[in-house]
């Protein structure tokens, strides 16, 4: 079992960051790796158990199920259902917390998964850097642009 934890501080209030992240179907609007996304069966994106089917820019298709969504904790969890990438039993958790003495946001993104031994290093790098770190950077840029708009 591989565990990854990445975290950062975003220079915006938790409400602004949460408004962006809360939409389980909205990652195609902020994550650079995601080309397009849709919730299956016409369900709403904040209905627990809903499934998002999305395509990465390289064309691969993935399905993920929403397992937890909390407006109180500003947190959500999801798992991968189908993927062409060798990530097995992938479960991820996102949580936000306010930095009360400077109106910023602590954002933690963690997961656990297993994969083929020969691909552990590459899968770890891909999730940590291409998904999590790239997601942090994209949200940071986007909120900075909004702030100046």
């Amino acid at each position: 079992m591989i565990r990854i934890v990445r975290s950062t501080v975003i220079d915006a209030s938790t409400d602004r960051v949460w408004a962006l992240l809360r939409d389980f179907n909205g990652h195609d609007r902020w994550h650079p790796a995601v080309a397009r996304s849709a919730i299956e069966r016409g369900q709403s994106a904040d209905r627990l158990g809903c499934v998002r089917r999305f395509f990465l820019r390289d064309g691969s298709e993935l399905r993920e199920r929403l397992l937890t969504l909390s407006d109180l904790e500003q947190a959500f969890s999801y798992c991968l259902l189908e993927t062409p990438i060798p990530l097995f039993n992938y479960v991820a958790h996102v949580r936000l917390a306010p930095v009360t003495d400077s109106d910023r946001t602590f954002w933690e993104w963690r997961c656990s998964f297993s994969t083929r031994q020969s691909e552990e290093a590459e899968m770890t790098r891909m999730v940590a850097e291409d998904i999590y770190d790239a997601g942090f950077a994209a949200v940071r840029t986007r909120l900075a642009e909004e702030g100046h708009a």
């Binding site: 934890v5 990445r6 975290s7 950062t8 501080v9 917390a97 930095v99 602590f106 933690e108 770190d133 942090f136």
Partner: peptide
């Protein structure tokens, strides 16, 4: 305490 992985900082609550 929670580590902030980008920058060797610490989030304290």
């Amino acid at each position: 305490l929670t580590p902030i992985t980008d920058g060797d900082r610490t989030f304290a609550e």
